[in-house]
Design a protein around this nucleic acid. Sequence first.
RNA 1: GGCUGCGUGGCAGAGUGGUCAUGCAGCGGACUGCAACUCCGUUAACGCCGGUUCGAUUCCGACCGCAGCCUCCA
Length: 459
Amino acid sequence: MLQIHNNLTKKKEVFTPIVPGKVSLYVCGMTVYDLCHVGHARVMIVFDVVTRYLRASGYDVTYIRNITDIDDKIIARANENGESITTLTERFIAEMHQDADALNVIRPDQEPKATESMADIITMIETLIKKGFAYAADNGDVYYDISKFESYGKLSGRNIDELRSGERVAVNEAKEDPLDFVLWKAAKPEEPSWDSPWGPGRPGWHIECSAMSSRCLGEQFDIHGGGQDLQFPHHENEIAQSEGAHGCQSVNYWMHNGFVRIDDEKMSKSLGNFFTVREVLAKYSAEVIRYFILTSHYRSPLNYSDESLEQAKSALTRYYTSLRDVVGKEAIVWQDDNVFGQRFADAMDDDFNTALAMSVMADVRQALNKQKDAEQASYLAGLLYSFGDVLGLFQQEADAFLLGDQKDNESEKIEALIEARNTARAEKDWAKADQVRDEIVAMGIILEDNAGKTTWRKS
RNA sequence: GGCUGCGUGGCAGAGUGGUCAUGCAGCGGACUGCAACUCCGUUAACGCCGGUUCGAUUCCGACCGCAGCCUCCA
């Protein structure tokens, strides 16, 4: 029985979908003005695994991840670069897809864009005004009046008084209350804009998610995800908008993933302490990054370091080493295995505890290494691949992981050297054999002599 | 300042009122010409101080430390 930590109630709850057998999932995606960093990779991978596991559990999942393609930063960056916002956003959408694909993240069912949702956004703002939750200011802005939404603060656990005490925003004259937030921003000269009943302008950040989630999934849906930093104000405001407009609970389960940190500090654009996915991919394979991210529970902070990535790489190498020698790939359904499969399910059912699930995989790997019977070994390997399908691991051929680029570049040379070494070994010329091996090691290759056969992998 | 969360062995990271996490690394051994791989064995931890309890890393309270949110941020 799947349990999810629901941030709305701050408790682990049994997951019950609105429609039996179906799950509607909305995740806040990227603002596309720059390359994705490791923090973005975490969101993509975490909810990729959530989706994979829900599907493996038999649910028909509709997964929506939006793209924010209009906002202040985008406008600023486009101006800096001297290009149109569309040129900028299209470029970074392509870059994002490239990273997501590299990380083996399954594409969401839909990726709605803010700029393609203007009609829905405007309709929703009109509804909010009509229902008294919002007001148009003299300057063409439209604001949400948070005093009208009684349960404002229920997600982030704040009340309006607390927010006032922590207030440090310069008061915007057009707002009736400094805590009110903008739904529609009147366009300044030269800014990209869309026509609206309040004049040309563009949507505030929060309204797009309310409009797109209800269009794609309905007024009420099962799970809403995103990074922890979106909890306030973004998701709080989303609730105020959606529930104000529709008059019903909008989301049943809120899930927020923890941050990626560097030296115990949040990795973020504003702090400038981030690594892009591109940078990390230059050093480590995508699967190593994915493995690293899944070693911790999704709600915990995750400290990024070379040491951790190296550990992930070593662990993954051991898996592929074990899988490499198994002949054939048996199609196993892990749900049918009532020992390891049950433990795996228990772990994943417990709020997607991937760290615990991976310890089950480690036990399977050890059982596989010990297994002398080929049929049993094949079964265990199949089980490992089956778990891997849920976590998005072991999706490549073992050789592709272990040999990497070397396979294409230098394999002939390596094979020749191995043969030379084995000739020397046959003649018991150990000095020569070791000398050849040193040469191979210098190429970044590690040799393994197994059962009369020498195999190699990159170090 | 307000609110939230966290503090586990060398590192990473789960979990539990009393007996095993797991991974990486280390140590001893088997295997190997030597290594590597693999296997066997093994070391070692629960921030600090009180309380509850027969017993607490696990529950409660104080303290210390760290992080996050309160402003754009995944």
